[in-house]
Write a protein that binds this DNA or RNA. Structure first.
Lengths: 338, 338
DNA sequence: ATGAAAGCGCTAACAT
DNA sequence: ATGTTAGCGCTTTCAT
């Protein structure tokens, strides 16, 4: 059995509430003598006391934990984001629990519930599609939360997202200005608002430059693991290149970009076919490919920090907060002249 | 406030212990009528009851959680491992909590303590250097744990690791058989046993093929973020290529391979210099580089599954277990003919 | 077949 | 300045 405050109390010869006060740094305000404080602290250390987080959380009603729901762990963007979130939360004295939903609605609901059961102080969520109803529920529960990367226009919630329309517009315009006219684009098959915004940005750029929108050049790929994505893209890409005569591709998501680039480079670009590529989200290898791949760089660190800031703010001022915080970032186009 | 079993009890009009029994699936064995069971379940659903994990854990003394300590989140290998661990643990009904130590001893101790405070049922740890003492403590605490990727020869603990010596030997031999003679190698500056094994494997291969070991060709890089690694490698690599006339590199770690390859390809290989590269750990982009990069592929999924299996086994048979489980995997050399 | 009650470890209000 | 005590939500043993 592990050491409890009662053991410390018995060891030092005081009541266990005194121990609790000292251990919580409330010695001074309760006028507990410095000498006793020191003895208690020493005893705790000697006995290797470790506070039971469950008991403390149960008693207090909340914990100093926040839950982070990641949609897709194989996406570097989310992992980096998680890292910054953890680092930032630590500054405020909060621990972060992680869980992944694999872009699955039910799994997402499940992990959110698990977090709620754990009495987390708040949530940071990269929501899966179809989570709208659950998110609405959270609002009723009065639990602070922030949506990241994606949000639901109909729900008034805190969010931290990208300016998807503008970013997609910029990417498309970049290709157009390089003289490209047959611009394919890959998106993630979803009803998510943010993907619609990206497609609209793409269309708008085409329109502004008088390029006819061709429905055939838009490929929507469901969320799959890397292997299955490769199979699917292994059908789409040859069709686009050989039959539809494309001269460039704008990958709207990391999950299509990685397998897409693999196929594209192995089968076409490396053997001399000139197809320009630009992707949402940068990757450390893009600059090493021949030719390199351009990208839309997202301000991951800022997004992580901001998410935590918003969340902690709401946790601390629970009652006061009325207005939800909506932050929209711009991507930076990394021009690798490809 | 949230809904408790008391609320359900009041709602249905029974005592709250009855509710507890039903909710724990012990209705039958306590001969609670099927009808009442149904009413209680319905009430729980209707009131949107969510069990308080803290209270349950406090009462039970353990939780169905296991803690996973990751050393370096920027390493894809560990992220993938984490994913498989989570998936496998779920099959046994366990949740996985994640935390990263950033290869820092103190941070590692901290997160292990946090996990212990949370009453986790067991731990899976990718230990940071210097964690030996803490690991020994864990043994005394009788908490089940498994070390992954690295272990301490002096400590009798469960572990799941690679055959580092053989893998390094194979990689070096691969380069030698391609006719390379000036083989540089990058390792992680540490006293870790597994890195020493890799260096020994490298040396052994050189010796077997009568190539003189040159201390200057061995570079040890401390654990740094990607940016700082690039700076450091930006000094080492030109020196190796220009002054020491190397013809190949064996990167012993992912953390040196990624920035190393970046510098190598940008400054030398892309402009015609012929330097073969092989790395511990594969990467999806290796095959796309020109020339491609060979690698030692680790059986990540098996390692994850095995770690969980060992851990759960020890959790379930706490008292019985005497022998520790030591699993060693072999890497597969991916020959990209570079 | 159902209820009463103890107690897990801790915090904090109240007492002395 | 330190001690007493109630109770957070739950499980489980023992009564009835």
């Amino acid at each position: 059995m592990s050491v409890t405050i009662k053991d410390i109390a018995a060891f030092v010869g005081v009541s266990y509430s005194t121990v609790s006060l000292v251990l919580n740094g409330k010695a001074a305000e309760n006028r507990i003598s410095a000498e006793l404080e020191k003895r208690i602290l020493a005893a705790a250390k000697e006995l290797n006391y470790r506070p039971n987080t469950l008991a403390r959380g149960l008693r207090r009603g909340v914990t100093n934990t926040i839950g982070f729901v990641i949609s897709d762990v194989s996406n570097r963007f989310f992992i980096k984001l998680a890292r910054y979130v953890e680092k930032e939360a630590m500054k405020y004295g909060y621990r972060v629990l992680f869980a992944s939903s694999d872009e699955d609605e039910n799994r997402c609901v499940e992990v959110v519930n698990t977090f709620l059961n754990q009495q987390v102080a708040g949530l940071i969520i990269i929501p899966a599609e179809g989570l709208e109803e659950k998110i609405a529920q959270l609002t009723n529960l009065k639990i602070p939360f922030v949506l990241v990367d994606r949000h639901f226009p109909k729900i008034d919630a805190n969010y931290v997202v990208m300016n998807n329309w503008q970013s997609a517009y910029d990417a498309t315009e970049y290709l157009i200005k390089k003289g490209k006219k047959r611009i394919a684009t890959f998106s993630y098959a979803t009803n998510f608002f943010h993907m619609a915004e990206r497609l609209d940005g793409y269309k708008a750029a085409l329109k502004d430059y008088n390029i006819r929108f061709d429905r055939q050049l838009v490929k929507e790929v469901p969320f799959l693991d890397n292997e299955k994505s490769e199979v699917l893209l292994g059908e789409y890409i040859p069709h686009l290149v050989e039959d539809l005569n494309i001269d460039s591709i704008f990958f709207q998501t990391n999950s299509t970009a990685i397998p897409g680039i693999q196929i594209l480079y192995e089968r076409y670009i490396r053997v001399g076919k000139d197809i320009s590529v630009i992707c949402f989200d940068d990757n450390e290898f893009f600059k090493l490919l021949m030719p390199p791949v351009s990208s839309l760089l997202q301000p991951i660190e800022e997004m992580g920090i901001e998410s935590v800031r918003i969340l902690i703010d709401e946790i601390k001022n629970k009652r006061a907060k009325r207005m939800k915080n909506k932050t929209v970032y711009s991507a930076k186009l990394i021009d690798r002249n490809n």
